[in-house]
């Protein structure tokens, strides 16, 4: 099938059956590996996968038909002559070694190579997520998942991207899959619980998820963040006293974390905002106003920070949330006076 020079063809006739079968077996594996690589790398883009498959099929048919003609064979021989492959790989043993070397390289590319590529695409996805390019983030994260489908953190990032695009059903699905892959990954519990409140209005489901997450979380920041949302879930369940207790304890915890130098203003702003809602539901307007002013203090610290005010930079989700809390507080406390 493969064009060789006459001299080479004569040598080939003397190949032992052993070398022939060994080469043939290697060739089959190599083709399988190439297809696996091809599929893994192109799977996230079904259109391009279909297109490239069609192109390859056309090339294969054209090659097959071309090799049946004298012109076609001469053309391939000229290429071979130019590259000098026929001169270098001129014995059955060399052919076999070459094929199995290629198999080795392909295996390396398929297994550790795919993992590395997945990391690379995940990083690109996370970068896109950070600058607010959510569609690009989804493309890259899909690519990473195609290469390494069992990454809980990549699924979590993908869920984040869907959440930012307000595709809550897809986000919930991805958070759940992330937890199926790693049931100790607390951020997925937290965000999933939050989405049950935000999009499904299901405080029971949220509480179940958040409480599991709280038990799984180990560091104090994680626990405080989840507890804030547990306080929110209690509020939605119309249990204001338990909600208040949870939120006050969370605020104390967040302040203690803040005193160690961590930036948790955005969580404090949200916790006070929720606390204001709790006081409102209890009919204590004075305390609600104080809590809203406290929320305003922390929200302004975030909203007026360089990260949220630098021109030309897309607003991060924390900035947007802080700006919203500033507006809410100003609306209630000062009747909308001032810039939101």
């Amino acid at each position: 099938m493969c064009p060789q020079k006459d001299k080479k063809s004569k040598n080939t006739e003397n190949l032992s059956k052993y070398w022939e079968w060994f080469s043939f077996f290697g060739l089959l594996i190599a083709i399988f590996l190439v297809m696996a690589l091809w599929y893994r790398w192109l799977r996230p883009d079904p259109d391009f996968l279909a297109f490239s498959t069609g192109v390859v099929q056309l090339v294969a048919i054209a090659s097959f038909l071309g090799l049946q003609t004298k012109g076609g064979r001469n053309f391939v021989l000229r290429i071979d002559d130019t590259l000098g492959l026929g001169r270098r790989i001129n014995s059955p043993k060399r052919v076999t070694i070459t094929i199995w070397t290629i198999v080795g390289v392909l295996v390396l590319l398929l297994i550790p190579g795919s993992q590395q590529a997945a990391k690379f695409y995940r990083l690109r996805g996370v970068e896109a997520l950070e600058v607010g390019e959510y569609s690009r983030a989804i493309r890259n994260l899909d690519q990473a998942l195609s290469l390494a489908p069992n990454s809980a953190t990549t699924r979590y990032d993908l869920a984040n991207a869907y959440e930012e695009l307000h595709d809550y059903d897809r986000a919930i699905e991805e958070y759940q899959q992330s937890l199926e892959l790693d049931d100790s990954f607390w951020p997925a519990y937290n965000n999933l619980g939050r989405l049950y409140l935000l999009s499904k209005n299901d405080p029971d489901a949220a509480l179940g998820t958040l409480m599991t997450g709280e038990r799984r979380a180990e560091d104090p920041i994680a626990k405080a963040i989840i507890n804030k949302n547990i306080g929110w879930a209690y509020l939605e369940k119309e249990l204001p006293h338990i909600s208040m207790k949870t939120l006050l304890a969370t605020i104390e915890e967040l302040k203690s974390i803040q005193s160690e130098g961590y930036n948790v203003e955005v969580y404090l702003a949200e916790a006070y905002n929720l606390l204001a809602r709790v006081f409102e539901s209890l009919g204590d307007q004075d305390q609600a106003q104080i809590a809203l002013k406290d929320s305003l203090g922390y929200a302004l610290a975030v909203a007026e920070s360089g990260a949220c005010t630098t021109p030309g930079i897309r607003l991060a989700p924390d900035c947007l949330a802080a700006i919203r809390w500033v507006a809410e507080a100003r609306e209630v406390v000062y009747g909308g006076e001032g810039e939101p």
């Binding site: 493969c2 064009p3 190949l15 190599a30 290429i79 392909l106």
Partner: peptide, 13 residues
């Protein structure tokens, strides 16, 4: 199966 050409794999590799 007498002649096997590795040429086809080169661009991929």
């Amino acid at each position: 199966m007498g002649k096997i050409c590795p040429l086809i794999f080169i661009p991929f590799v």
